[in-house]
Design a protein around this nucleic acid. Structure first.
Lengths: 109, 109
DNA sequence: TGCGGCTATGTCAATGATGACATATACTGA
DNA sequence: TCAGTATATGTCATCATTGACATAGCCGCA
């Protein structure tokens, strides 16, 4: 990770940097972040599969393009509630969402 | 539903009352509420299975008994994020949570 | 009866999330 | 190059969520 990116992440409240910083996350925190990341990826996948722009999704959500971008980036400022709302608006059922949560992320740890 | 209870619910922002009020929920809103209710029930089940009081769980969550009670009541003021935190603190994995979401509630509609 | 543990409900100040806006970057086609 | 489209990032006023507190009800037990 380059220094500029680290600086940006740290400024937003993420604990980023040395490996011990990452290990400093409790297992609980890690599990919640992992779920959030999976939901954000699912959101982007669903949006793109429907050929919608972030602007178009924002309109359906009565939100803004910038917030949709943050949702897909799993930004610190985005709640899981909001991600779920986004997924549901894109047609995801609770069952779909369950599959997103239990499925392995496909990205090497 | 008696009038006193309705009044209390309405005061908290729930749309309660006639059948059409309930039908006025969009399918999206209904899906989100259903997920929230399932999570709240899972929370109570897990807590009781561990023989913990609401006070004991609140301490692990660094929260309060009253908030735990509201979580288990799926109160309007409780976010899904908070319910997930509670479940994770009680040992639920993302896979466990996925099962909660996809499983039928067991309560007749 | 009274006491102690547990849960429910109402309230509120403090904190956190949200939509909106501005601006930046990247890509495409003319 | 320029214009148009899409996405990313930073900021902020407004609104929602939170922990804490008070209080009430319920139950089992002495």
């Amino acid at each position: 990770m380059d220094k500029a990116k680290r600086k940006r992440l740290e400024a937003r409240g993420w604990r980023v940097g040395t490996a011990s910083d990452f290990l400093g996350l409790t297992p609980d925190e890690a599990a919640l972040i992992e779920m959030k990341v999976r939901l954000s990826r699912a959101l982007r996948a669903r949006r793109e599969a429907r050929g919608l722009s972030q602007v178009a999704l924002a309109q359906r959500l009565r939100s803004s393009q910038s917030r949709v971008a943050k949702m897909e980036a799993a930004d610190q400022s985005v709640s899981i509630d909001l991600l779920l709302r986004g997924l549901v608006v894109l047609g995801a059922t609770p069952r779909d969402i369950a599959r997103v949560l239990e499925r392995d992320s496909g990205v090497a740890a």
